[in-house]
Design a protein around this nucleic acid. Structure first.
Lengths: 242, 242
DNA sequence: TATCTGATCTTTACGATGTAAAGATAGGGA
DNA sequence: TCCCTATCTTTACATCGTAAAGATCAGATA
């Protein structure tokens, strides 16, 4: 009696094979020679396995399904195992967001490299930004859903900082100025804030489905990417009325 | 024994007076003449009371503290009472978001009215937008945290739609065009998307503390409002490099 | 006027979640 | 060989959302 947890959290030996990456291999233990990989007590690389499991859960069940216990289930360990590696839910989400930022930065960097013409180079970054968010909406959601993130964690702080630096740098190149690290003029700050706000705002609204209304009223078959392009290239016409 | 809920949810008669708005007054019931307002079984205007309680909880404890049970506690009713009026948590959040959108729309409308010069009129709306979000970060968070909202609810759909219409209209006036309801050119769509993305993105980044970095590097004492203004007025200088 | 009905609110119950604390299990140095 | 410590599991508890059944009351009906 007194079974508090009804749903089998651990599922020891009843689920997916677990330990998809034995990797390190230095762990045959005394049970070497035993063909049935019987889920050893010590995982060996649980931390990474949990992060990968978390990413899988996020893509499969969305943000709402991303719980500590769900991740533990997906990795095939007990529900309290993640706590030891990440402290709490905030810890896990923060580390996962760091992973996301690194993927994100890599995607933008590679997009910039493949661009040839100046115009393409200017548009490559924003397009890659939105493309990443569309391809990984869950990840993007975590990265910019600050309320449950701990930016004092070095890995997250660092990865997010790199993302910002890349953006500021790109804006600087666009203006053919050197952006000095520590001081900004109002115009420089405004340019950076504009670029970031525009792309981030567009992405957020797009993922939240708030642009459907606009997209539906545009000429037949206009994609979000096309709208973004127009938004960034078409000159602003502000004839202030008398 | 078998007390599942330990924390006193109801707190009948041990908490704040409850029924801060007897309003309707047509409810003395047979117990009329009883001086001690002993929390009648039927509240009379629970729905509105719950929404106000929710707003209070949101401002006091933030988004994380806004739970069905917390709202019920704040209103001094049983934890299951809100369900009857809103169905589930999504229902309550959606109705609360609708309240927020109405406040939001009213704030923007009044800001536009008080502006005199054309430039001021052009900036009034974005400024009011950001100002509302800064004054009511919790509300803004709910309004644009789509994952837990049900836009099929008429009140929410309507209030949010009005917000969008106001924006589109403002952009149209800026371009001295009539925005026809059902069709948009690419340039018109781009202009609307740009305005909305810029203001929404700026607000989101500001509330998430992601602009602190920029603001700290700007000339001493530059406020977020000033940065917004610069972002919206300073011409875009994009000298594409060869 | 007495009764009935439906809306409103409370009680009780259940599964799920985050988190803390204590126990089990090895890997690696003494 | 033995023990220490990091790693993982068990157990426990408070809280949350939600469903279902019971209590209460206002107003319609007879």
């Amino acid at each position: 009696m007194a079974k508090t947890d009804t749903k089998s959290d651990t599922a020891r030996g009843s689920r997916t094979p677990r330990r998809t990456t034995p990797s390190a291999a230095s762990r045959g233990s005394r049970r070497a020679g035993n063909a049935k990989t019987e889920t050893p007590y010590h995982h060996g690389a649980l931390r990474e396995a949990l992060l990968q499991a978390a990413e899988r859960v996020l893509e499969r069940d969305g943000l709402a399904g991303l719980t500590l216990r769900a991740v533990a289930r997906e990795a095939g360990v007990s529900h309290a195992a993640p706590t030891h590696h990440f402290g709490d839910l905030t810890g896990l989400l923060s580390e996962l967001a760091a992973v996301g930022f690194r993927q994100f930065n890599a995607a933008m960097a590679s997009a910039c490299d493949t661009a040839t013409t100046p115009l393409a180079r200017a548009l490559a970054r924003p397009k890659a930004y939105v493309a990443y968010a569309q391809a990984h909406p869950g990840m993007y959601g975590i990265m910019f859903r600050t309320e449950r993130l701990d930016y004092s964690r070095p890995s997250l702080h660092e990865a997010a900082e790199a993302s910002f630096a890349g953006l500021a740098n790109a804006v600087g190149m666009m203006r053919q100025e050197q952006i000095s690290g520590d001081a900004l003029t109002l115009n420089q700050g405004a340019a950076i804030a504009r670029a970031w706000s525009m792309v981030h705002g567009f992405t957020t609204l797009l993922l939240d489905g708030r642009l459907e209304d606009i997209l539906g009223r545009l000429p037949e078959g206009t994609t979000a990417e096309r709208l973004l392009e127009a938004m960034l290239t078409v000159p602003v016409t502000t004839k202030l009325p008398a």
